[in-house]
């Protein structure tokens, strides 16, 4: 495991060649350009899918190469993936509630207050918010 038998106290650090860093950096810049470009193409609901897909690829490049996850001890990768999985559970189960509400009892469909009360105030001549910035 961690303390290998024939450890040398001075294990030479694992150095990546320069061109890998520069290459990955260039790739990240290209992907940024692609995601900006695609966002102006109307794809309906797929815009967000494509955007998140590209962002995930970029994030993965950063994690695996820049953050060395590809070469480090696998436990780091396992922890990283675990955090992503837990976060996914958080998002998925919360949205399973918020998107599926009110199917049996329609009056519980959310949000409870569709329009914020602050806008009702704003329509009155005397602005009670004291903001008056418009």
């Amino acid at each position: 495991m961690n303390t290998s038998q024939n450890q040398t106290a001075f294990a030479a650090p694992h150095v990546l060649p320069l061109k890998i860093y520069l290459g990955v950096g260039a790739l990240l810049l290209i992907l940024t350009g692609v995601t900006v470009g695609v966002s102006f193409v109307p794809l309906g609901g797929f815009n967000v899918v494509v955007a998140l897909l590209i962002a995930s690829v970029k994030a993965l490049l950063v994690a695996l190469i820049f953050m060395h996850l590809l070469w480090d001890h696998k436990i780091l990768l396992i922890f990283f993936v675990t955090a992503i999985v837990i976060l996914t559970i958080f998002i998925a189960l919360t949205m399973f509630d918020t998107m599926e509400r009110g199917l049996v009892n329609p009056e519980t469909r959310s949000p409870i207050q569709q329009d914020a009360i602050i806008y009702q105030n704003q329509q009155q001549p005397a602005n009670t918010n004291g903001t008056g910035g418009h």
Partner: peptide
């Protein structure tokens, strides 16, 4: 930031 950028600036 790689995620924040498309989620806020690039809503298609």
């Amino acid at each position: 930031w790689i995620f924040l950028f498309p989620l806020f600036y690039l809503i298609g």
